[in-house]
């Protein structure tokens, strides 16, 4: 076992063997089956399937609303993390625990609940309808759902970094005459930027593939409120396996690029910390 470089505890062979077996059977085999299926289509057929008008509209909606949703989360995630780390107020522990709700709540439950809240007669939908904003069954509704499921990512990546910032640095800035806002912009913000971007990319990746919480609030109108994962499901229901696989391959490529980006960002964050 030349490639084991460190570690004296027993069990290397067993845990390596079992992990590789399980990962291979459950992850690598199924995913490569999909990649092989997609590449067996041939370039021109693949291209027609992934670039028809309905698919393009679905990509636009998925990427656009995921982008807006995770941008909202980047801003408010930093705000929530800041408030949770820096201030003491009644119910702080409860709020901190609730941030993880989108992780634990099944997406279908989130979907029907968001639809009920933002439907025309819903608690908040009613108020928004008065000022002429329609949420349910519009791209805005899709964005709201994608914002919901992305909430924990930025908060949970920024929170530990904010906790680690040495108060001396902020005091030094204040002594040197910086205003509180200048200290935030020039001292605190640069140190939480890598974590914020990581959280943003994670939220974006999650939003891109999200299905359950969106299908109820979007109304699923082709060309208008049909997200890409739903298009895959629709094609599957029509037994168009080739079409579904082709579009899934596009989505998979997008998620892998994002995963790569997240890894690079995390490496950058670690270097910034060191």
């Amino acid at each position: 076992m030349r490639w084991k470089t460190r570690g004296v505890l027993p069990g290397f062979g067993l845990s390596l063997g079992y992990t590789l077996f399980y990962v291979g059977l459950l992850v690598v085999l199924p995913l490569s089956a999909m990649v092989i299926k997609a590449s067996s289509l041939g370039p021109s057929e693949l291209w027609t399937k992934v670039s028809d008008e309905r698919a393009l509209a679905a990509y636009r909606l998925s990427f656009g609303s995921a982008l807006v949703g995770s941008l909202v989360n980047a801003v408010f995630g930093v705000l929530v993390a800041w408030v949770l780390v820096r201030y003491r107020f009644p119910g702080r522990g409860l709020v901190d625990a609730l941030v993880d709700l989108p992780f634990a709540l099944p997406t279908a439950v989130a979907g029907i609940a968001l639809t009920t809240v933002y439907a025309e007669h819903g608690v908040l939908g009613q108020q928004l309808a008065k000022i002429g904003v329609k949420v349910a069954f519009t791209p805005l509704g899709v964005t709201m759902a994608l914002t919901f499921i992305g909430i924990p990512f930025v908060v949970r990546t920024v929170q530990p970094v904010l906790e680690e910032i040495d108060p001396d640095v902020e005091e030094a800035a204040a002594v040197l005459g910086a205003t509180r806002f200048q200290t935030f912009r020039r001292v605190i913000f640069p140190s939480i930027l890598p974590a914020t971007l990581t959280g943003f990319a994670l939220a974006f990746a999650r939003a891109l593939g999200e299905y359950g919480s969106v299908v109820f609030i979007s109304g699923n109108m082709p060309m208008r409120t049909e997200i890409t994962p739903l298009l895959i499901v629709t094609k599957l229901e029509q037994y168009d396996y080739a079409g579904a696989t082709a579009i899934a391959a596009v989505m998979l490529m997008a998620s892998f690029s994002l995963l790569l980006l997240v890894n690079l960002l995390e490496r950058w964050a670690r270097r910034a910390e060191a």
Partner: peptide
């Protein structure tokens, strides 16, 4: 690779088993 299922859309997670 262990993290992969996190970044795969749930719909695709179903699709691969159908394939």
């Amino acid at each position: 690779v262990v993290d992969l299922p996190f970044s795969v859309s749930p719909v695709i997670s179903g699709l691969i088993f159908v394939l």
